[in-house]
Every structure is written in structure tokens, then in C-alpha cells.
């Protein structure tokens, strides 16, 4: 039996914003980098995202946020990840993220931030880098 362990990533769209092109093309890029990607679909609550991450035992939760609400969303989700003891799960965030918020997110416990325009290579190596 093939027993290769793959990085499993949940690409999730939290909240009401429906711009999913970025999430979808990143999902395809991660697939082509050999990862197993679960896509949450739109309009997810943080509870739905957490429950999906647990059931699918993903290694990475990748949020795509275009509405500008990345700070409050990440603050809550990092707290939920801690509370549920998902110590091995890394949270990464992409979307419309102004420069000045990157450090704020990192301090919150977000493992990597990929603002719009980040290349697929950087995203892939950034995620691979979390496991080295």
C-alpha cells in the first residue's frame, strides 16, 4: 500500500465575502504541488471551519479573506485553535492584507501571511517550510 504522508490543507472562506477566485486557484496550485486540499466552500462560520479542520485532520488551515475583516477573524480563529488543542495545525492567511497588518497577524499566531499577488512558488514553499 502506498503510504506516503501528504500535507493536508483546508482552504477556507470565512464570513460573507464571496470572492473565491483566489481561494480556488491557490487550491489548484497546492494540489499541483502534491498536497491534498480540502475546499470549504463559501460563507463559512468559524465553527464550521474548525469542525472541518478537525474531521479532516488537516495540517494547515488557509483562510482567504478579501473583505478586510482579517484581523477580527484571525484573532478569533487562533483562539479557537488554541482552545481545542489543535497544536499541530498551522493557520495561514491570504487575500487583501495591507502591509501594516502582516506583523499584527504574525504576532497573533498566524504562521504565514500571503497578501494578494504572492506567487504560487512562495505560497507552496512557505507551507512546505512549516514542516521543516
Amino acid at each position: 500500500m502506498e503510504t506516503v504522508n501528504k500535507i493536508r490543507v483546508l482552504v477556507a472562506k470565512p464570513g460573507l465575502d464571496g470572492h473565491d477566485k483566489g481561494a480556488k486557484i491557490v487550491a489548484l496550485a497546492l494540489r499541483d504541488a502534491g498536497m491534498e486540499v480540502i475546499y470549504s466552500g463559501l460563507h463559512q462560520t468559524l465553527d464550521q471551519i474548525m469542525s472541518t479542520a478537525v474531521q479532516e485532520s488537516v495540517d494547515v488551515i488557509g483562510l482567504s479573506i478579501m473583505s478586510g475583516a482579517h484581523l477580527p477573524i484571525c484573532e478569533k480563529l487562533t483562539a479557537m485553535i488554541k482552545e481545542q488543542g489543535l497544536d499541530n495545525v498551522h493557520l495561514v492567511v491570504g487575500g487583501v492584507i495591507p502591509n501594516q497588518d502582516v506583523q499584527v497577524l504574525r504576532k497573533m499566531g498566524v504562521a504565514a501571511v500571503f497578501p494578494g499577488g504572492t506567487s504560487f512558488d512562495t505560497i507552496v514553499s512557505g507551507i512546505n517550510g512549516l514542516f521543516q
Partner: peptide, 21 residues
């Protein structure tokens, strides 16, 4: 799985996501 890279988009779930909670 993709034959080329071994990766996959596991897309069935999105159609069942109403049950995520």
C-alpha cells in the same frame, strides 16, 4: 489524486458542507 503530482483537491465535501456544524 492527480497522476502528475500526487496531490488532490478533495472536492466532494464542499457539496456536503451544510452539515459541517
Amino acid at each position: 489524486s492527480s497522476h502528475k503530482t500526487g496531490g488532490a483537491v478533495l472536492g466532494d465535501r464542499v457539496r456536503m458542507q451544510a452539515h459541517a456544524g
